[in-house]
Structure formats: structure tokens, C-alpha cells
């Protein structure tokens, strides 16, 4: 099994509208991340662009449609398509979500939450075994941004992720914005979540923006919208994580209201500064 091996640098989510600006000059990022599903066509500009980027940068392929958290079987056709994309581009990392998106053959195009029980733990573990066997690679599993809870849950999300990593050998993708969003949404302290998280399994971090609204009762409800710069409390939480585990590959995600490339690059440069500071702290 090929281990996940992104360099310990900052990266950016690749958007096709940034392609011309990115290839115009060397960029201060270690890697780009793409959504696997956007590269499942037979040919055309998406592959031409990704092939060009791959010549100069590390690559993380991030799936958004595998529905690993489904209690129904994985879509074998989709898994085969993922293998085709990974075989073609040989990414340093492949990751997916602790969530489901397909049910009874209908693709719902959102990362939906699941209860955390012994039964879901078993099924998710089986799915990850199947993914890693098919791809021949270690995958990373990402913690979700959630808006509600399930009465039937018997496990903490952090314990669930730790046990999944232990059983399957997968790595974890710690989305710090998701931690913040979910903690506020469930009236918890995000620092407690980080304290309980199995940080030793983290191979990549995600950073992004969120938006703020309120629930039926007027309590804060944060939405994982990926449409703004990273917010200050998320940067602070990220620094805490870096202080605990040292430098780690860190990606800026910006998927909606996508800005011009220099603004997204600036976010990646800001993350790189914190990675560098963490490296110096380790050396000292």
C-alpha cells in the first residue's frame, strides 16, 4: 500500500479559472488539491490542465462522491473511476470524507452526517478497507462539519475516527474549519475536540472560511461554506494543532465566490508562515 506522503507545506485547492495565473510564474505552494470527480471525463481541458500542474507541484486528490459513510455498499463503478484517476496522476495523497452522499442510487451531492455507533464504525471500516485495497494506497479520512446530532450515537466523533484509523491503517485529514464549525454548532469548545483528536494519524490539514447564521432558537449556526478567507479563530486553532504535531501539509479550500488567484495564494502563504514557525519551534 502506497502511504500518503504530501510534503509538509501549504497548498491550495485548484480552480480552473486560476490556471493561467498559476502557470505564469512559479507559485509559493507545495501542492494543489483537486476534486477527483472533476477529472473523471475522458479528456479535454481538465486533464490538460492537471497534467501541466502535475509537472511542477505535488498533488492531493480529494474525493467528494464516494459516500464512505453510507450503510449501503460502495459504488464499484465510482471506485473504479477513482482508481483510474489515481493511477493516471499518482497523487501524493488521496482523501475522502466521513460522510455519505448516495442513498438508494441517488446522488444527493452533499456531505451528510451519520450516527456514530459500533455498527457504523464497522461499515465505515469495511468501506475504507475496500478503498485502500482497490487503490493500493493509504487514504486519508476527513472529519465532517455537522449541523445536527443523532440520538442513537454512542461514540464520540474523535473516538470513532481514532478507531477507524487503528482498524484500517488509514490516515486522517483534520479539517480545522470543520472542527470549529461543528464545535460551535454543538455548543462545545473546539480546543476540547482537538485535545481528544488522534493527532498522531493526521497527514493533512484543511483550512477554509465559513458563514454565520442562527438556528430556530437563535443559537449560532455556522455553515461550512468555503466562500471567505480563513477566519481568525480557525487560524488560532490551526496554530494550536501545529504546536502539537509540528509541520504538516495544509490546504486552503475556497470553492464558492472564488477570488482572484493572488488572494487565495496569500492565504496559502499565511499558512506556510505558520508551518515555518512550527518547524523553527521544533528545531529550537
Amino acid at each position: 500500500m502506497i502511504p500518503s506522503a504530501l510534503s509538509q507545506r501549504a497548498g491550495a485547492g485548484f480552480k480552473p479559472e486560476h490556471f493561467a495565473a498559476i502557470i505564469a510564474e512559479p507559485q509559493p505552494v507545495g501542492f494543489f488539491e483537486v476534486h477527483a470527480e472533476n477529472y473523471m471525463g475522458a479528456g479535454g481541458p481538465p486533464h490538460a490542465q492537471l497534467g501541466k500542474l502535475r509537472e511542477d507541484y505535488g498533488l492531493s486528490i480529494h474525493g467528494v462522491g464516494l459516500s464512505i459513510g453510507s450503510m449501503q455498499p460502495l459504488d464499484r463503478d465510482h471506485l473504479t473511476r477513482l482508481k483510474t484517476v489515481c493511477d493516471r496522476y499518482q497523487p501524493e495523497s488521496f482523501s475522502e470524507h466521513l460522510a455519505w452522499s448516495t442513498h438508494d442510487g441517488v446522488f444527493l451531492s452533499d456531505l451528510l452526517p451519520l450516527p456514530y455507533t459500533q455498527e457504523t464504525l464497522f461499515r465505515v471500516g469495511e468501506h475504507i478497507d475496500e478503498v485502500q485495497e482497490t487503490l493500493g494506497r493509504q487514504m486519508l479520512l476527513e472529519n465532517p462539519a455537522t449541523y445536527l446530532l443523532f440520538a442513537e450515537s454512542t461514540l464520540e466523533e474523535t473516538d470513532f475516527l481514532a478507531e477507524i484509523a487503528r482498524r484500517t491503517g488509514c490516515g486522517l485529514l483534520l479539517d480545522v474549519n470543520n472542527v470549529f464549525v461543528a464545535a460551535i454548532n454543538h455548543n462545545l469548545d473546539p480546543r476540547d475536540y482537538i485535545a481528544r483528536f488522534p493527532l498522531e494519524a493526521v497527514r493533512e490539514i484543511h483550512l477554509s472560511g465559513h458563514s454565520e447564521t442562527v438556528d430556530d432558537l437563535g443559537a449560532p449556526l455556522l455553515i461550512d461554506s468555503h466562500d471567505t478567507p480563513v477566519k481568525d479563530p480557525v487560524w488560532a486553532l490551526y496554530e494550536t494543532v501545529l504546536g502539537r504535531i509540528g509541520p504538516v501539509a495544509s490546504l486552503i479550500e475556497w470553492d464558492n465566490d472564488v477570488p482572484a488567484w493572488p488572494l487565495l495564494r496569500g492565504e496559502a502563504v499565511a499558512a506556510q508562515r505558520l508551518i515555518d514557525a512550527a518547524a523553527r519551534q521544533r528545531a529550537a
Partner: peptide, 11 residues
Amino acid sequence: MAWNSPSPHRR
């Protein structure tokens, strides 16, 4: 459910 509601419509 939610921490503050047994039937969180908006969420």
C-alpha cells in the same frame, strides 16, 4: 437532534 432542540428544523 441538536444540543438545544429535539427537532432542529432549521439545522
